[in-house]
Amino acid sequence: MRVGILSFAHLHAEGYVQNLRRISGVEVIGFSDTDPERGRRFSQAYGLRWFWTHEDLLAEHPDAVIVTSENARHRELVELAVRAGAHVLCEKPIATRTEDALAMKAAVEAAGLTFMTAFPMRFSPAVQAARAMVGEGALGRILAVVGVNHSENPKRHRAWFAEKALAGGGATIDHTVHLADLYRWIFGVEVAEVVAEVSNPFDPEVDVDTAGLLLLKLENGVPASIDASWSRPPSYPRWGHLKMEIVGEKATLVLDAFAGHLHVWRRGQERAYEWLGYHPDPNQGMLEAFVSSVRNGTRPPVTWRDGYEALRVVLAAYRSAERHAPVEPGALG
């Protein structure tokens, strides 16, 4: 199977190349990027063919593409890819506006192609085990969920993450979708209502939010929080973390998806102390699942709908923060 990568704007593209290369029978044909600096740099770093335009890459007829552009450009690239007959794995968040997500759905469905939203945390063994325990009723009635997805400000790796026009927002759109998706997946319900505080307490140089605290009510009545803040300093020993506590009547689950780490000290470096993970990379499982759905023509384990619903939670959070009132994601879009 021949896979192309549409844009190296998103940080995750670098990891995906290495994940794809570990899957037998998958050939990474190269990547397209209209930014020549990025093109040359990553072409050299990963020994990859660089296409200056997305059309040039698609002219090579890849079976599938991964869209890792800036959030606001997903629609344009997905539509291009679908026109060229390529199946799509689309980076999260699926889009920055519901109308873009809906247009992507229409394009993919009309072409009869596979579309998967990149929610790698569903492929974390700890998350999968937590979901199984909830499903078996091991916790009894669920009382509350506490979710934390902190990170450093990603702008020092890619400036566009902190540009509203390209990213759709800041920390809140960047992080909320992961936990929102996990809640939907673990509990099998939609998010009924969102109340949020969203602001920029951490970086006066950018015009996007750097912190978001959301209190959701799930359809089953369970309250669930999401802390989507870029609140870790660059010197934090890891980019951040994804944590979740599920408080149940009989037992409480305490999940720290990246808990398994070595303590590493290096001489004379900026991040002198690092938590170096040793658990399986959830991205690997996600890419294997995508490749397998494309090969077998089966429904992908994460769908367009999953990406769309998570986006609606994000948009509800922004709206709630403006109004200081609860907002129903289901009423948006």
Binding site: R141, L143, V146, V195, S199, L213, S225
Partner: peptide, 30 residues
């Protein structure tokens, strides 16, 4: 201030509350 409480469980004292506090200067607390 905004807070959400866990649904009640018949015959038990179990209770869990999360509260978000919003500040004039954009700070926030959970």
């Amino acid at each position: 201030v905004f807070a959400r409480r866990s649904p009640g469980v018949e015959g038990k004292v179990l209770e869990h509350v999360q509260a978000v506090l919003g500040y004039e200067n954009g700070a926030m607390a959970l």
